[in-house]
Design a protein around this nucleic acid. Structure first.
Lengths: 336, 336
DNA sequence: CAGAATGACTTAAGCGCTTCAGAAAGTCCA
DNA sequence: TGGACTTTCTGAAGCGCTTAAGTCATTCTG
């Protein structure tokens, strides 16, 4: 019996009679042959069946934000029918992405970059290897597919909402920038290597400035952990004059801000209004339910998945997709 | 120039002169050669450098519990120096694990099973392929390394604590069992395919029974999502007589229970005591801070990582590791 | 200075599979 | 009945690499 026949028995049943195929599979079972070796198959077909997912930080930091879980799950479901597995490459916080050599050695057909820092060394090997690339919430690169949301517009929505409620004293709770060295605050956030951080900050500040509010306290939560975030929020709330409204770059941060406020004996929204960003599931059933900027996280993941499939199919990168955002008014904001 | 020399330039610098090596690498750069193809290298070395991580459910369901993030992160950090990547295989909720064919096709050197359902089809291909296996929070299989915590003992701790506070009317909020069909409740939880669920339930009920409490309401949260969990908790709290204490199989469930109680106008711990399980980071800064059974999640992940390294190194599976648990008293429990 | 030891590089086998081009055998129609 | 098809299976090349064994020149050693 030739190898080719066995191979066909597994991969192309139409190439041999049903009877012989049965016989082959039965013999395989008897011999304890578990089916084609995935690595050898990959080498022969030059397809690994895996998608490399590049993260900006450690797994626990990355997954502490439910926004990632939701997005990644939607992505996984979108590519699932094609049978792809997900190869997770955690980042190092110093580089805002995985180390280059890990990317170089990753067995994957395509890379998906999720909110990596600009200039992270992780993307060069992707290019060198000729891997297709889909970026989520990052600047567009040549030859790359992209999906993201209107970060700046969303931030503007949040700021405008609070202005309309009469607030004039604001604090901004910022996502981490790249390096933990140096002072925290406005300049630091503005110079963040993360596009999302920069854009949201710009959205807040521009809108506030248009309304004549220019003196805004900015605090940055170093790498996402609940404790860090609450501490940063507390530092904003202890400022004087105390802000009456907090603009938070994610719901995760907003939730921490609410907790911090409570700790300080402040009531939300009576004493301080809090608005988040993302509209993660938890935002709706938090106490109080969070006013936030909604983006379609599941849609973002699904579209990223479709882009993956499209690129794997040899398609050219389509124009970048920008998802809309909208303000969801719940109970964490009130007139000043 | 021979292939072997190039290979050595990348993998064994001691096999050639530094000068020639430089020359090789320079030439590679000029020719746009990105270094050895990972798949071909794997075939030749029969090492993929990846660890397959098998989950019981979808990514969003799995990662909605921070306990997983923490454990997985610790595992990733433990294996990181060896340069392993993580191949994530999400499960289907009907099977309590990933589909067999995905496991069969996974390019990995070893499998880690996290709290899969008993009898899931995912583990057979692991065995057939001869992959080493580490199980976390699951029954021990032959030829397998295992790490887990004392689920039953921890549950007993929680129940005893509430009994000592004088509680006599209990509700149990159970993790999902395998199938969503059939009645929810005691029998269903007892027959769960998940070892953790069964053990914790047994721990609760045995301890309560020893104290003469036998009539305990059990409600099961179908696949972990905040909404589901809160609804299940609410159904317990609406029972009559209303339980004065809720035993929750995870902190995630406990947090949802607190939210549900609040929604019903009940105060925690004045009207109802709530105790969780796991001691996830959020438990400490929740409102109120959660009384819970602590298990060393990071330690569990780290040990699992060490087991992975040990098995990959050709070591025999050591005896199963059972991690201790302890009760952490915070403010979500009070005398009845 | 012969022979052993060392260092630097190459030869060639093989990892386990897929797939294309063909061989062998059977089928069909004029 | 015989050439043209079809169906079923096999031969063999090749995917891109690693590595044990081997070659050859150079350097020691006694």
């Amino acid at each position: 019996m030739s190898r080719a026949t066995v191979s066909n028995a597994y991969n192309r049943p139409d190439q041999l009679s049903a009877q012989l195929r049965e016989e082959v599979l039965r013999a395989a079972k008897n011999l304890g042959y578990p089916g084609p070796n995935p690595t050898a198959r990959s080498l022969a077909t030059s397809r690994t069946g895996a998608i490399a997912f590049l993260l900006d930080s450690s797994l626990s930091a990355a997954f502490s934000d439910p926004a990632l879980s939701v997005t990644l799950d939607a992505l996984a479901k979108a590519v699932d029918p094609a049978g792809h597995a997900l190869l997770l490459l955690p980042g190092t916080e110093a580089q805002g992405g995985p180390p280059a050599e890990r990317v170089l050695a990753a067995q994957a057909d395509i890379a998906v970059a999720y909110s990596l820092a600009d200039g992270t060394p992780a993307l060069e090997p992707v290019h060198d290897r000729g891997l297709p690339l889909v970026v989520i919430d990052q600047p567009l690169l040549p030859e790359t597919a992209r999906v993201g949301c209107d970060d700046r517009g969303g931030a503007a929505l949040a700021a405008r909402h609070l202005l309309e409620l009469g607030h004039r004293r604001f604090g901004v709770l910022s996502a981490p920038r790249l390096s933990s060295a140096g002072p925290s605050g406005l300049e630091s956030a503005r110079a963040s290597s993360f596009r999302g951080t920069r854009e949201r900050l710009a959205g807040y500040l521009e809108t506030l400035a248009e309304a004549g509010v220019t003196d805004v306290a900015v605090s940055e939560a170093p790498w996402l952990s609940a404790d860090n975030a609450a501490a940063s929020a507390a530092s904003l709330l202890r400022g004087s004059p105390r802000p009456t409204a907090l603009l938070c770059m994610s719901d995760q941060l907003a939730l921490a801000a609410v907790a911090a406020a409570r700790q300080l004996g402040l009531h939300v929204p009576e004493d301080v209004s809090v608005v988040g960003f993302d509209d993660i599931p938890q935002a709706a059933w938090a106490d109080p339910p969070l006013t936030t900027v909604r983006q379609d996280l599941a849609g973002k993941g699904r579209i990223a998945g479709e882009l993956v499939l499209h690129l794997l199919d040899g398609g050219a990168p389509p124009p970048p997709v920008q998802l809309p955002v909208s303000l969801i008014r719940r109970d964490s904001t009130a007139p000043v």
